[in-house]
Design a binder for these strands. Sequence first.
DNA 1: AGCACGCCGACT
DNA 2: GTCGGCGTGCTC
Length: 724
Amino acid sequence: MSRDNERPKDPAQPSGGEQLALIRETVRKAKVPRAKPRTWRGAALAGELPVARVLVDKGPVHLDKLWDYAVPAEMDAEARPGVRVRVRFGAGTGKVREGRREGGGLLDGYLIERVAESEYRGPLAALAQVVSPEPVVGPGLLALCRAVADRYAGSLADVLQLALPKRNARAEGEPSPPPLPPPGPPAPGSWDRYPAGPGFLEALARGDRPRAVWTALPGPHWPREWATAVAATLASGRGALVVVPDGRTAARVDAALAEALGGPGRHVLLTADLGPEERYRRWLAVSRGSVRAVVGTRAAMFAPVRDLGLVGIWDDGDRSHSDDRLPQPHARDVLLLRAVHERTGFLLGDLGRTVEAAQLVENGWARPLEAGREQVRAAAPLIRTVDEGEVARDAEARAARLPTLAWQTVREALTRGPVLVQVPRRGYVPRLACERCREPARCAHCSGPLEARDADHLVCGWCGRAESSWHCPACGGVRLRASVVGARRTAEELGRAFPAVPVRTSGRDHVLTSVPDRPALVVSTPGAEPVAEGGYAAALLLDGWALLGRPDLRAGEDALHHWLEAASLVRGHGAGGGDGESDRGGTVVIMAEPTLRPVQALVRWDPAGYAARELAERSQLGFPPISRMAAVTGPAEAVEELIASAGLPGEAEKLGPVPLPPAPPGRPRRPGDPPPGEVWERALLRVPPGQGSALAAALKEAKARRLARGVKDPAVRIDPLDIG
DNA sequence: AGCACGCCGACT
DNA sequence: GTCGGCGTGCTC
């Protein structure tokens, strides 16, 4: 290649030619005898930092690798770090025709940084286009996404795709409103029911970064308490982000924020149901620093809030906090990473307490933020248990197939207000449990859940070993039962038993937001309970066995959570405690075995104690989150090969692989589901405490090293939630 | 993923 | 000889 080929056309860019020479020099060093024609041939390069490092978003090569491109002079001003770009990829091997390269599709990407020179020993292609000058990937977001990708053995590009909303040109063309000044520090309000509450707010307001696991008192105050914590953070001049499980909850916190912050302008609601344009408009307002407070559902966990002072999550045990798309990051973990990386305060709020939250308290990373016993007693309803086997003596109760106590409670409460009836959702798979004491049946080898493969063969759902001589480790029983519940029908019969009272239902398809303070039977599935304006007069929890019988590690925790959620909508029991304007307190009747631990935790309203015990037990059994797990799913050979090639930590234990049950029909396919017609397997990898990141790193490296060769890549999921 | 290169066997 | 199988490697 001769100097004559180089014709810098723009005299205003004298150093462009120098850069060209520099790149050519690197080509020569790489013993390429003659530089091949290149797409930027003849084009003037940007004067300063003429190399753009680009993360290619889609396409096959989506390793965490950055690709270097030359920045043409005319793109110099717009090609700033963080912007969306388009690049030709794969053109280098294409045919040369008429002195230009053909082939290589245009791919979307992000310009990560501008540098003076490239490490790449070869001719650089030029950026094809700067899609828009809006920087969307800042250094903070990039670092966060890298950390999430590492934590979940996923690729940076995958995580960025979760973190960034789809671009919308119209929204981007509009200016965002100017930021409002910070509000003054808020009064503690109902936070003063918690001994450590006012102190937590003061710490936020003065710019500290307190970290707490908050066990919220039952009742309607927690949305306002979230708003107060956000307002306190804003008062320090910093931003705040709260992630909640669903749009309904987000709307409640949003309304409370509007009240606490004196109207709109200082906060935004970020949910999926806004539609792409409005969503991007609001996201831009956050990204541009025009708004500093965000409440939203899980995608909001990545919201690029400027100078973040508080990250919060409500109901961290809710499944919707875990993304469906690989690498399935969980909002709790993402926010934990943000709290550490961005040096922010942290608030995990819940009516109950997950085992993960208990772990944060136990290892001292976060402080418990709890009310005293007398506050709890005042705010919570009276809880009574009835055995599901008890048969009512009076004819009316028998007709409704309810025990006498439940019948009487409902009848009495209906004179004072609405009554909530919690019924199980259809489709819960029963788990095998000891017939005598209901202890879930677990594998003697790995503690995985036992499943009935056919009439009388038990198989472990984790390691696949057959179990031929099961006996209950808790009580010595030798017989198993699968729980069966017909509670929905019970609820229908209950409705018929009170013909004068309207029956309203709320479920997956039709979720009611709230019901008026009038006598009514409100039948709801867990998670869909409407708020009653004055609190429910009573609640009937009919789903004990269905919730506890699910083939899930978190069955007890989830059941308790659903009960607490329903019970927290019932009027408090203690007069004058919180806002006891109700004439009489509410009652909750739960049909479940009173000796079961989740049931006892509900009766005593002690979710923290339950979580602590559960944590200790899981630690002993080698369950997550103490031990960490990864699920590798795919065609049998691919699973084996990936595991064999990964340099797993020494103490890693392989469970399985077991054949994967086919995905239930109707549900959209998720990562890790076999494609129709294919048989896949799943192996679990388990490591002792402290080796979770080593496990993720090993799997990520093995995945990166092994470029797909015909066989489909297995899906790797860290801390999978659906492993039974 | 595409696409090209390359090193083997069967054909005009 | 040379056409083409697809195994292997690269794409800034």
